[in-house]
Write a protein that binds this DNA or RNA. Structure first.
Length: 565
RNA sequence: UGGCCGAUAGUAUAAUGGUAGUACAUCGGGUUUUGGUCCCGUCAGUGGGGGUUCAAAUCCUCCUCGGCCAGCCA
C-alpha cells in the first residue's frame, strides 16, 4: 500500500469536540491534560440517548490519555433515589466503561458549594430573596422584555450572611427564601437574570440524609463540581448552551478552576423518545412492564430485549457528534444490532406458528440425527445434532395453498428443502370444518439428504422445521416499536405520546415449538432463530427448563418487502 | 417584537478557500441449504439572494427555516 493510501485510511473524521480538544492540547491548555465526566441525575434509568454521551466522554478520555469520572448530579432530593444510582452504575458497566474509583456525587461537595455561596455573598454577588415563587417568576420578565429587580436585592452583606446561615440551620419553611446571584435583571439571557442558587427543601437526601435543608440548584452545583474534579472539558447537551455564561460567571466570581463547557446535540431516534419524564409516565401508567420492558429505549430494557453493548457502542460511535438537532433513523440502530448478533449468535430452529407436517414415506418409528451448523459466520461455534422423524412442524408462513407468483416456499405439489434434512413435496392438504389448514401430508426424497450431494435437483427455497416428537413448547414474545409515529415526543393536535402507541408492540405466542437444545438456554442467552430473527432468553419471566424468548429484532426480510408491494 | 445555537443526498455525518466523500435506508444484480450474511452496482445533496476570490459547502452580508431560554427541575 502506498503512503498516500495509508494516510487516507488513517483519516478518521474528527468531530468538532475532538478538534477542540486537539487544539487545547496543542496550546498546552491545562498542561495538556484531558479529564471528562459523565454526570447523570439519578432520577430515572439510563437510555440509549445517554449511551452517546457515555461513549463520548469515556472515549475522549481514553483517546487523549485522560480520565473520565462518573458523577451523580444529585442536587434535588425530591426526585432522586438509590434505585436509580444502582441501575445507572450497572448500565455503564454493562456498556463496558470503567470509572475506576472515581465515583463522585455532587452531594459530596455540598460543604464546598455552601462555602462558594458564602464567597459570593461576601463579594456582594449574591443575596437572599424573600419574595414568593410567584413574585420572582413575574419579576423575571419575558425573553423579549427585561425583568425588574427584587426589593430584597440590596440587602447588606451582613444581613444576607445571617439569613443564609439561618436558611441552612433550618429556621425557615420551604419557599420562604432563596439565594440568588446578583447579575443583571435586564440581561437578554434569562439565565443571567439573578438566577436562584439555593432553595430550601426540608427533605431527606438519598446520600446526605437530613444534614441539609437547603440544596444548590443545578447551576450552582454542576460547574462547581466540574471544577472541584478538575474537569478540563465539560461535555453536555445543547439545552445548556444558554447556561454557559452563568457557568463561566460563577466560576470566575468564586475564583476556582475553570473547566470548558462544550455542547453537542443529544441523540434522538425515530419511533422512540428519550425524555426520562415521559418514560417514567409509561412506567407509572403501566403502559409498559417497568423501566426494563424490552420495548423501552432504556439500556436495561434493551439488554432484556437482547441488545449487546457492542451493538450499542458501535451505533453510538456511528451517529457522529455535531450541534444540529437530528433524528436518527432507527434502522441504523437495528443495523448495528444485526451486524453484531449475526457474528456472535448460534443458529437454532424454532417454529413460531406451528403447522403439522407428516412425511408419509418416512418410517413412522424411525428417528435420525442430522448435523446442523451452529454459526456459518464462526467456524469455532461447531455443529449440533438435530432429531428428524416423520412428524414435523413448520411455520404457517412457509405454506400457502394458493401462492402468488414469487412465493418459493411450500405449496401443493411444490418441493422445498428442510434445512439440514431432505427435500419434501406437499402432496395433500388437510383442513378442519372451518376450512383452516391443519396438516400437510408430504413425501420426502431420501436421495436429497443434506450434505450428501447425491441429488442434482434444485429447489427455490429452504425452510426451517422442528421434529414434532422432540420439540418442546415455549413462549415467545414478539416485540415491535412502541410508537407508530416517527417523533412521538412532539405530536400535534392536542395528542400526546400516549395517543400514538403502536397497538401491536407486543405479541405473546405461547405455543411455539423449539428444537430440544434450546430447552436449557439460560437467562440472556442469544440465538438466531433461522430465517426469523434474533431472540434472547428473557431475564424476568424464564425459569429453569422453561425459557421465555424475546425477539430482539427480525432478520432483514426481503420477501416481506416484495410481498408488501 | 430579545438572546444564543444550527442548516450538506431520504436519514445521519465528513470535506477547515482547491475533485462534495462515508454510513444507514432505497432500488437492481451476483453468491447462498437462512428471501439472512457477503459481494457488486444504482439512486440521491451544499435552504435562498447578494458580495469577496483565479477558486466558496467553507469567508462577509441580508433573508428564510428549525432548536433552546420565562422551574425554588436537570
Amino acid at each position: 500500500m502506498s503512503n498516500k493510501e495509508t494516510e487516507i485510511l488513517d483519516e478518521k473524521p474528527i468531530d468538532f469536540i475532538r478538534a477542540k480538544i486537539k487544539e487545547d492540547i496543542a496550546n498546552n491548555k491545562n498542561e495538556g491534560r484531558v479529564h471528562t465526566r459523565f454526570p447523570p441525575e439519578p432520577n430515572g434509568y439510563l437510555h440509549i440517548g445517554h449511551s452517546k454521551s457515555i461513549n463520548l466522554n469515556f472515549s475522549l478520555a481514553k483517546e487523549f490519555g485522560g480520565k473520565c469520572n462518573l458523577r451523580f448530579d444529585d442536587t434535588n432530593p425530591s426526585k432522586e433515589e438509590v434505585e436509580y444510582v444502582d441501575s445507572i452504575k450497572r448500565d455503564i458497566k454493562w456498556l463496558g466503561f470503567d470509572w475506576a474509583d472515581r465515583e463522585y456525587y455532587a452531594s459530596d461537595y455540598f460543604d464546598e458549594i455552601f462555602e462558594y455561596a458564602v464567597i459570593l455573598i461576601k463579594k456582594g454577588k449574591a443575596y437572599v430573596d424573600s419574595s414568593s415563587m410567584e413574585e420572582i417568576k413575574t419579576s423575571r420578565g419575558m425573553p423579549t422584555s427585561p425583568g425588574v429587580e427584587s426589593p430584597f436585592r440590596n440587602r447588606s452583606v451582613q444581613e444576607n450572611l445571617d439569613l443564609f446561615e439561618r436558611m441552612k440551620n433550618g429556621e425557615f419553611k420551604d419557599g420562604e427564601h432563596v439565594l440568588r446571584a446578583k447579575i443583571d435583571m435586564s440581561s437578554p439571557n434569562m439565565n443571567m437574570r439573578d438566577p436562584v442558587l439555593y432553595r430550601i427543601k426540608n427533605e431527606s437526601h438519598h446520600r446526605t440524609g437530613d444534614k441539609w435543608c437547603i440544596y444548590p440548584m443545578y447551576d450552582m452545583a454542576h460547574g462547581q463540581s466540574d471544577s472541584i474534579e478538575r474537569i478540563t472539558h465539560s461535555i453536555c447537551t445543547l439545552e445548556f448552551e444558554n447556561h454557559r455564561p452563568l457557568y463561566d460567571w460563577l466560576i470566575k466570581e468564586i475564583e476556582i478552576f475553570p473547566p470548558q463547557q462544550i455542547e453537542f446535540a443529544r441523540l434522538n431516534i425515530s419511533y422512540t423518545m428519550m425524555s426520562k419524564r415521559k418514560l417514567l409516565l409509561l412506567v407509572q401508567e403501566g403502559i409498559v412492564d417497568g423501566w426494563d420492558d424490552p420495548r423501552m429505549p432504556t439500556l436495561s430494557g434493551m439488554r432484556r430485549a437482547g441488545y449487546t453493548p457492542e451493538a450499542i457502542n458501535s451505533f453510538a460511535e456511528g451517529v457522529g457528534v455535531a450541534k444540529r438537532n437530528a433524528l436518527v433513523d432507527v434502522a441504523k440502530l437495528e443495523h448495528s444490532l444485526r451486524d453484531h448478533l449475526n457474528k456472535i449468535t448460534d443458529r437454532r430452529m424454532a417454529v413460531l406458528n406451528p403447522l403439522k407436517v407428516t412425511i408419509t414415506n418416512y418410517p413412522g418409528d424411525q428417528t435420525e440425527e442430522l448435523e446442523a451448523i451452529n454459526n456459518p459466520e464462526d467456524e469455532t461455534a461447531g455443529i449440533r445434532k438435530l432429531p428428524f422423524c416423520s412428524e414435523l412442524f413448520i411455520d404457517r408462513d412457509d405454506f400457502m395453498e394458493d401462492p402468488p407468483k414469487k412465493y418459493f416456499r411450500l405449496s401443493p405439489g411444490n418441493e422445498v428443502r428442510l434445512k439440514y434434512a431432505y427435500f419434501i413435496k406437499c402432496e395433500e392438504v388437510l383442513k378442519n370444518d372451518s376450512g383452516e389448514v391443519i396438516e400437510l401430508k408430504c413425501t420426502y426424497d431420501p436421495e436429497t439428504k443434506s450434505g450428501t450431494g447425491t441429488s442434482t435437483r434444485k429447489v427455490k427455497s429452504t425452510i426451517h422445521w422442528v421434529s414434532a416428537r422432540h420439540a418442546f413448547d415455549a413462549e415467545v414474545r414478539l416485540y415491535d416499536r412502541l410508537f407508530s409515529v416517527e417523533d412521538p415526543a412532539s405530536t400535534k393536535d392536542g395528542k400526546d405520546f400516549r395517543d400514538v402507541l403502536n397497538p401491536n408492540s407486543l405479541e405473546i405466542l405461547s405455543a411455539c415449538k423449539l428444537e430440544p437444545s434450546l430447552q436449557e438456554a439460560k437467562s440472556e442467552d442469544k440465538f438466531q432463530f433461522e430465517r426469523l430473527g434474533y431472540f434472547c432468553v428473557d431475564s424476568k419471566y424464564s425459569s429453569q427448563g422453561k425459557p421465555v424468548f424475546n425477539r430482539t429484532v427480525t432478520l432483514r426480510d426481503t420477501w416481506a418487502r416484495i410481498n408488501k408491494k
